[in-house]
Design a protein around this nucleic acid. Sequence first.
DNA 1: GTCTATAGGCTGATAGAC
DNA 2: GTCTATCAGCCTATAGAC
Lengths: 198, 198
Amino acid sequence: MPRTEAQNIKLRELRREEILQAALNVFSRRGMVATKISDIAKEANLSHGLVYHYFQSKEEIFTLLVKRAAESSGQIIEKAHLQEGTALEKLKWMTEQILYSLSEGQQILLFLIMIQASTSDAVPEEVKRFLSSEEFKSPVHGLIPLISEGQQCNEIVQEDPLKLAISYYSFIQGFAINKLQWTQCPVPEAEIIMKIFK
Amino acid sequence: MPRTEAQNIKLRELRREEILQAALNVFSRRGMVATKISDIAKEANLSHGLVYHYFQSKEEIFTLLVKRAAESSGQIIEKAHLQEGTALEKLKWMTEQILYSLSEGQQILLFLIMIQASTSDAVPEEVKRFLSSEEFKSPVHGLIPLISEGQQCNEIVQEDPLKLAISYYSFIQGFAINKLQWTQCPVPEAEIIMKIFK
DNA sequence: GTCTATAGGCTGATAGAC
DNA sequence: GTCTATCAGCCTATAGAC
């Protein structure tokens, strides 16, 4: 009995995910340009020709991962807004979530893809367009409303919210990089970084 | 009258510097692999063939720049140690120096080369060897003595010095990246980041 | 010292067998 | 769906003219 159409679509989707996951692993450590299609194929245990059966090009794969990373970083800020408690409590919750997600699993790899995408000139045009489009909201700007809210009820120091947001996000990005360089580096407590708001 | 030998050496050294500077400009934005020798040549206004008259390979140029960046980041920590004042004052002085140097000139480019070198697998073997050699002392470890000193006279909070050093250095690295992404981003005051030590 | 021309190798992408 | 073989283009590095 042949597989139904729905099953075929599902299988195809599964295989695409396998390839995307493999690509994420190699892209995040080697960057887009230095990664060969054959590296991705090897990581996913299939032939390089097959990668092109599922994706049109290396650039398409990279672009998909960048969009996924952007979505993921947008979601955590959204979730923080929806959290119970004061603005400062929401920020602390978010910080704990991020530090935890950076210390386990592959969330950190999405983070690094995002850093690559936004710091390198050698990325597909579509990535550049996406990052400067309305569709993409930078994490720094997503943080500002939360910080301003905290300042209004005097939970957070009266500094330029933009500078605070940049400081906060710098720490997060920098920690992701540190973690990649040195996998077993200890994870600082959320309280340490929260001090910049006090 | 022909140039003396000394003048020739000097001229050669100057031209090498021009090429190194051009390479730093393009490497820092595109990464080593995505940078073509012809990109460097174009940036330095000379032919790609001539680059090979002064350097053996693209990898040699990149490796030289990594070593230069490592030296530069080591120097700032050394200078901080030699500064007058308490440990906390030394740290603040260093933070101001770094934030200033990241907001002007090309110091930031060396910083970014260092980040690339230590986060990417796609770097020359010699860079990997250098970064894991005794010769190279990571900034995080350079900071620990200063932090411990501050803790002994109770200027600095009694937290794991390693976690404090990681937090501090994460912020610095992250800010360098932010600055690259968004050149006109405002520079936070040193006081903001110094709060993590309080 | 500086350039242009080119060799040689690698890789992204495709074609076609199974 | 999956693989292997291959094409075409690009890039590093060299050779050789000026």
